[in-house]
Computed example of a mutant assay.
Amino acid sequence: MNLTGSTRIRGTTGLLNVRGEDHPAADLLPGLTVSVEGVRDGADLTAAEVTFKEGDLRTARAIAGGLVGTEARVAENSERIDNIGQLVQAGRTKVFFALGSAELSAEGRASLDAIAEQARGLNTAYRFAVVGRADPTGNAAANERLSQRRAQAVIRYLERSAGITPDKFLLPAALGSAPVAHDPDVPQNDAEARRVTVTLAVSASARRP
């Protein structure tokens, strides 16, 4: 897709996708779902107008912010992870929630205790990536807030009850019910979507033999 100086980039809101404010080209973030109107010349498409949902933009910003936040937090920590940008998964758990709830269940607390114990047993620096989700019930804004509450509930438990210090967390992401481009772990049903995924990550260099 080719952009020109006259390409209009706009966000939309609501069920009717009412057009809202104009946006700069910098807001066309990786993973953002867009609709394009323009002129095609063979394989090339010159865009006259690009539109996207404001909710999808917030999701893309949260994901991008998590990546930037990773670098910023690691740089500030006294316990440095080498090769930032090359974090690899060392463990993962999912915490599921009741409909409309951000309250941890006994099973959820047990899962968090287990991954916290795994982290404390590592002989290298580690970080936790926390991603909240919601099912499609309700509107997009409410789902985003609910997924944020769920992510924060998980972080609070890990800090207050499982002994994980705040510097061990990457910037959390709240995805709500929005679809994610190239999602490696798509929820298969509504119950599976009501969750927080907690990933334990270490530097890639720490996993090399």
Rank of each mutant, 00 (worst) to 15 (best):
S105E: 07
L29C: 06
D185F: 10
M1T: 15
V39Y: 04
L3I: 04
A129W: 10
V95D: 03
L171Y: 09
L171K: 15
T46H: 04
S203L: 11
L32C: 00
S203I: 06
V88N: 10
D22K: 10
L200S: 04
I84H: 05
L87Q: 12
R149D: 15
A64E: 12
A125G: 14
V34E: 01
I9G: 03
R145F: 08
G5L: 08
T4Q: 09
D183C: 05
L171I: 07
L3G: 03
G65L: 00
D113I: 01
D27I: 04
A129K: 15
Y126R: 09
A153T: 04
T197P: 05
G100M: 10
V18Q: 13
R195D: 05
L29M: 06
D44W: 08
T12H: 05
A119P: 10
G31Q: 09
R127Y: 04
S35V: 10
T7V: 09
F52L: 01
L45M: 06
E144P: 03
S203D: 11
P24G: 12
F97C: 06
A193S: 09
P187R: 00
I155P: 01
D44M: 10
V34P: 00
V202K: 07
V198E: 00
V88Y: 13
R92K: 14
A75W: 12
V95W: 02
V74C: 11
G108T: 10
P209Q: 10
A43Y: 07
G66A: 15
R40P: 00
T46Q: 00
A106P: 01
V18Y: 09
L29P: 03
S161A: 15
V186C: 06
R133D: 05
R80N: 13
V18T: 15
I84E: 14
R58H: 12
L158N: 03
E54M: 12
P30Q: 05
E144W: 01
R194H: 05
K94P: 07
T13Q: 12
N189R: 04
A47H: 02
H182N: 15
N83W: 14
A62M: 08
M1R: 09
A43E: 07
T70Q: 12
T4V: 08
T46L: 00
G5K: 09
D113A: 13
G11V: 08
V198T: 08
A191W: 07
A178R: 14
A106W: 02
T165F: 00
T199W: 03
V131L: 08
N83D: 15
E144C: 04
A201T: 14
A153S: 13
R40C: 00
F96W: 11
E159V: 08
I81Q: 14
T12I: 03
R73D: 07
L45A: 00
R92H: 10
P187V: 03
A60G: 02
A64S: 13
V18P: 01
T124R: 09
T13H: 10
R156T: 12
E192V: 12
G42E: 01
E144K: 09
R61N: 06
R73P: 07
D22G: 14
D190M: 05
P179C: 02
T93R: 14
M1V: 13
S105R: 06
A47F: 06
T197S: 11
D167T: 03
A140T: 12
S177I: 00
A201M: 15
V130Q: 01
